[in-house]
Amino acid sequence: MRLYAQTPARRVRQVIADLAAVALIYAAVRLALAVHDAIMRLAEPGRAAERSGNGLADALGDAGDAASNVPLVGDQLKKPLSSAAEAGTGLADAGRALQDTVGDVATLATIALIAIPVVCVLLLWLPPRLRWIRHGDATRRLASAPGGVDLIALRVLTGSQLALAALPTPPGGFAEAWRRGDEQVIADLAAIGLRQAGLRF
């Protein structure tokens, strides 16, 4: 199985197309990762809120524990401090929730920014490449099969007549020469057919 054409012009086009596809996929991945990092920076307020909330909850919890040791009024002093500590825990929870939301948005954006361009590139690039590989393989097998060169020459005869302009017209025309089995004309026609497919004898 041949991945690239034998004719230089088509091979260059194929290599350029392959490199462009790889470069576009690489650029899409790099862009997606940069966007992911930028979005994740938006989670910093959430991290700050979580740290502050945890610190506040710990400090107020410790103060409430210390206040509970005050004789007679210890339990009454502890209740408002415990309530404030719960508010600090709520602030920490809100900070974690913000970080989770930002992380989810960053992940979805990254997936979308990678998947959409990659799918578009693959849909535009891969089918023609696979089609050429199959067609080139089938044409090579046909050229090496008995009578295959005749069939390739016939394909050229029934195709665009512009391809025949480069050849000298044999007596009676190309079709008559093909019917007679003129080996030189058939070889010339088959060479055109192979060249159209990006192949050579």
Results as ranks from 00 to 15, higher is better:
residue 2 R to G: 02
residue 2 R to K: 11
residue 5 A to P: 01
residue 6 Q to N: 09
residue 7 T to C: 13
residue 9 A to F: 06
residue 11 R to D: 10
residue 14 Q to D: 09
residue 14 Q to K: 10
residue 15 V to F: 13
residue 16 I to N: 04
residue 18 D to P: 07
residue 18 D to Y: 02
residue 20 A to M: 12
residue 21 A to W: 10
residue 22 V to T: 13
residue 26 Y to L: 15
residue 26 Y to D: 07
residue 30 R to V: 15
residue 31 L to Y: 14
residue 32 A to I: 05
residue 32 A to N: 01
residue 32 A to D: 03
residue 34 A to G: 09
residue 35 V to F: 07
residue 36 H to M: 07
residue 37 D to W: 00
residue 39 I to S: 02
residue 41 R to G: 07
residue 43 A to E: 03
residue 46 G to F: 01
residue 51 R to V: 10
residue 54 N to D: 11
residue 56 L to D: 07
residue 59 A to E: 09
residue 60 L to W: 12
residue 60 L to V: 10
residue 62 D to I: 14
residue 62 D to S: 15
residue 64 G to D: 11
residue 64 G to E: 12
residue 64 G to S: 14
residue 65 D to I: 15
residue 65 D to N: 15
residue 65 D to H: 14
residue 66 A to E: 11
residue 68 S to W: 09
residue 68 S to M: 15
residue 69 N to H: 14
residue 71 P to D: 10
residue 72 L to S: 04
residue 72 L to F: 13
residue 74 G to V: 13
residue 80 P to N: 09
residue 82 S to Y: 06
residue 82 S to F: 01
residue 83 S to Y: 06
residue 83 S to R: 15
residue 84 A to F: 11
residue 86 E to R: 08
residue 86 E to W: 05
residue 86 E to D: 14
residue 88 G to H: 12
residue 91 L to M: 12
residue 93 D to L: 08
residue 95 G to R: 04
residue 95 G to W: 06
residue 96 R to E: 06
residue 96 R to P: 00
residue 98 L to P: 01
residue 105 V to M: 08
residue 106 A to S: 06
residue 106 A to I: 12
residue 107 T to P: 00
residue 108 L to T: 15
residue 109 A to I: 08
residue 109 A to K: 03
residue 110 T to L: 00
residue 110 T to Q: 11
residue 112 A to W: 07
residue 113 L to V: 09
residue 113 L to R: 04
residue 115 A to T: 11
residue 118 V to N: 03
residue 119 V to N: 02
residue 126 L to P: 03
residue 128 P to A: 10
residue 130 L to V: 13
residue 132 W to E: 05
residue 133 I to N: 07
residue 134 R to W: 13
residue 137 D to Y: 03
residue 140 R to F: 00
residue 140 R to N: 07
residue 142 L to Y: 00
residue 144 S to E: 11
residue 148 G to R: 08
residue 150 D to W: 01
residue 154 L to Q: 12
residue 155 R to E: 11
residue 156 V to S: 06
residue 158 T to S: 13
residue 159 G to T: 03
residue 161 Q to A: 10
residue 163 A to D: 13
residue 163 A to K: 09
residue 163 A to P: 04
residue 164 L to N: 08
residue 165 A to P: 00
residue 166 A to I: 14
residue 166 A to V: 15
residue 168 P to C: 02
residue 169 T to M: 13
residue 169 T to Y: 00
residue 170 P to W: 03
residue 171 P to H: 04
residue 171 P to M: 03
residue 174 F to I: 04
residue 175 A to T: 13
residue 178 W to S: 02
residue 178 W to H: 11
residue 179 R to N: 03
residue 184 Q to W: 02
residue 184 Q to F: 01
residue 185 V to P: 02
residue 185 V to N: 03
residue 185 V to H: 00
residue 186 I to F: 02
residue 187 A to R: 14
residue 189 L to D: 02
residue 191 A to W: 05
residue 194 L to H: 08
residue 196 Q to L: 14
residue 198 G to D: 09
residue 198 G to P: 05
residue 200 R to C: 05
residue 201 F to M: 03
